[in-house]
Computed example of a mutant assay.
Amino acid sequence: MNFYFFYRTVYHCPFCNLCRVGKGLGVDFFHCMTCNCCLAMKLVEHKCREKGLETNCPICCEFLFTSSAAVRALPCGHFMHSACFQAYTSSHYTCPVCSKSLGDMAVYFGMLDALLATEQLPEEYRDKCQDILCNDCDRKGTSSFHWLYHKCGSCGSYNTRVIKSEPHCSTSTN
Rank of each mutant, 00 (worst) to 15 (best):
C129S: 06
N159G: 13
D138T: 08
V97A: 07
D136T: 01
A87H: 15
C169V: 03
C98R: 07
V162C: 10
A69F: 07
R161K: 13
R139S: 11
H168Q: 13
S144Q: 02
F85M: 10
V107T: 10
T66Q: 09
G156F: 04
S144W: 08
S67Y: 08
T142V: 14
S99G: 05
R139N: 14
S144L: 03
L116R: 06
S143Y: 04
L148H: 15
P122Y: 05
T89E: 10
T66E: 14
Y158H: 06
W147R: 15
S91N: 07
D131G: 05
S157K: 05
I163G: 02
K100F: 01
L116G: 05
F109I: 02
S67A: 09
G156N: 06
E119N: 06
T160G: 00
N159F: 15
S67V: 07
C98L: 10
T66C: 11
L121G: 01
T142N: 10
L148S: 14
G156Y: 00
A114P: 15
D113E: 09
T160R: 04
A69L: 13
P75N: 00
G153A: 07
F145G: 07
I163L: 13
G77L: 07
S157P: 15
R126T: 15
E123H: 06
S99A: 12
S143V: 10
H78P: 02
L112G: 08
Q130H: 13
Y149R: 10
S144V: 02
F109E: 03
A106D: 04
H146S: 06
Y88T: 02
C155H: 07
C129V: 05
R139A: 03
A70I: 03
E124G: 00
P167S: 12
V107R: 06
N135T: 09
R126P: 08
M105N: 05
E124K: 13
V71G: 03
Y93E: 09
W147H: 15
E166Y: 11
W147Y: 11
Y158I: 04
Y125K: 11
D138V: 04
T94R: 09
T89W: 03
N135M: 15
T89P: 12
I132K: 03
G156Q: 06
R72C: 04
A117T: 14
C76E: 08
F85S: 09
A73S: 14
A87L: 13
M105Q: 02
W147G: 07
S144G: 13
C98D: 09
C169E: 01
S99M: 12
V71F: 06
S90H: 12
S68M: 12
S101V: 14
R161P: 05
S157D: 08
D131P: 02
I132G: 06
G141I: 07
H168L: 14
D138C: 09
G156V: 03
A83C: 13
T118I: 06
P96A: 02
L74N: 04
L121T: 01
C137I: 00
L148W: 15
P167G: 05
L115Y: 13
K140L: 01
H168E: 12
L116Y: 01
K100Q: 11
Q86S: 13
F79H: 05
A117Q: 15
L115M: 12
Q120I: 04
Y88W: 12
L102M: 08
M111E: 04
C134Y: 05
